[in-house]
Amino acid sequence: MGTSDTPGMSVRIANLEAMFDHRGVTSAAHSSISAPALDGLPAQDRVRTLQARIREMQSSTLDSRSIPTHPAIAQLLPGGALKQGAIYSVERSATLLMALLAGPSAAGSWCGIVGMPEFGVEAAARFGVDLDRLVLVPHPGDQWLNVTAAIADVMEVVVTRPPRRADDASISRLAARLRQRDATLIVLGTWPQSEAMLSLSESDWSGIGDGHGHLSARQVTVTVTSRVHARPRSARLWLPDREATFRQAEKRFEPRLAPADLAPPLREATG
């Protein structure tokens, strides 16, 4: 046995060795792969958990290259990062979308936004998307699939919002093209065969009160549902915090209204 380069690999190898040591595959697997977690589960769940574990091991051994991802979100994603050639779907939130774009964009990738005329460019710039490498196609019309594919040919990350559900043939054609070009597609809305689905819930705004203050930061629960993980993973994130950055929330944020006397006075805008 040679030296293994990842700790995960060495654990797995140790498991294999343990299997042969005990001369019983099932019992070894059962005992070594976090058996206590499985014990209390009903049979169906246990099967699902094990299947997920298998898929996770398989996918991590595949030679799939990942693209830089914001660490706050990377931990939730299957494989620990956005993968090239994969499709992710984001439910509703444009801020979450920008959080996904910020990592690749800062690392020098070009991003294309297809079919989103309401994409807030200023917010994107503030959240770390480089506008010099951002291209928008706000109104692709009926050709949105062709345009998305054409943009995916030349850009590393493509965002699209399907105006309607595409037929299965074109979906799989697009998926094949993405794999071939190593482009990552992020869909705003649902998409069959997406690698993971990211959604937002329980958003708590801070800084704004009852007639005073202004929106300054937000804590949300980001939930990632994927085919790989048996159950959704979620984390409490600042999206964004007061410095317009994304990070993990240390503790559950208590929505507290800003005291009226601390609210910055806003002058009338004249000019």
């Binding site: 917010a123 202004h214 806003l266 805008a269």
Partner: peptide, 12 residues
């Protein structure tokens, strides 16, 4: 003067 507070909206 009088522009919006620093956090810009993500959907315009």
């Amino acid at each position: 003067p009088g522009q919006l507070p620093p956090l810009p909206p993500a959907t315009v």
